[in-house]
Design a binder for these strands. Sequence first.
DNA 1: AACTAAGACAACCGCTTTTCA
DNA 2: ATGAAAAGCGGTTGTCTTAGT
Length: 278
Amino acid sequence: MGRSPCCSKEGLNRGAWTALEDKVLTSYIKAHGEGKWRNLPKRAGLKRCGKSCRLRWLNYLRPDIKRGNISGDEEELIIRLHNLLGNRWSLIAGRLPGRTDNEIKNYWNTTLVKKAKPESHSGSSKETSPAPTKFRPRTPSATATQPQVIRTKATRLTRMLVPSLPLLIDDYSTTTSPLDLRVPQTQSVSSLPEDAANTEVHIQGTDAMNFGCNGFQAAAGEDEDAMGGYDIPLDDGMLNDWTGNDNCDLEKYGASLDLDSLAFLLDSDDWLGQENSI
DNA sequence: AACTAAGACAACCGCTTTTCA
DNA sequence: ATGAAAAGCGGTTGTCTTAGT
């Protein structure tokens, strides 16, 4: 249909990259920086699609990438993040420095899916992103017991919703799920109504990890009204942090969730067992 | 030694989202 | 406000390697 191809495929190299191509691409990006992928091949003298160049750079040539030897901790974190996020590989990769989404995806599909399956039911985020064909559950009933995984599709939020249920919990171990994040009593948040100081925050319909960065539940779209609660405009800083990818300052908002470590995910022994209660 | 199946992973494809003129 | 281009993402496929027979 109407969609034009990302590039003309005539005369382009395909398949595995050669050392020379890698060198050319690396040199070009070092000299000119990333971006402009569509024009890059022509400028660099590569007979490759821009998309292919981007993928090669992001997944293999970037200097900060560490390959292979995924540690036990990383493996465990991947499993837990997958339970939390589903097949949001880029988000998962974002919590594992030096790892790429493609690597994690492959590692999951070849190794972890077997380990995680008994407990997690694959944690597939939803019907639209099932496990790859060869690992797909054989029976449709498998989906019936799948945990409800947070839809983590990045959604820019302009408002946040803090439900009005007051709770007095600041200990993750007592929460009903790892997604129940508590705003500590001691925190001071200018935009919070006074009586919302101890407010249970549910993640719903948005990127849970991004949420974690901002420290509050951000109600996306139609969920907003259904929740009932405090409707709070997000300030600029929170909006700037909305992707949760870097430098987000949780302390600023008084939340104790640390995206670097996500320690609570690793420390919560019963986390895998709790997922079904989400 | 030859063949086959399974594992592992690089790369591609098509769609969605974001950016920008 | 809108549409096209660019970038990003996740699913899938292709190919190479390794283990088993």
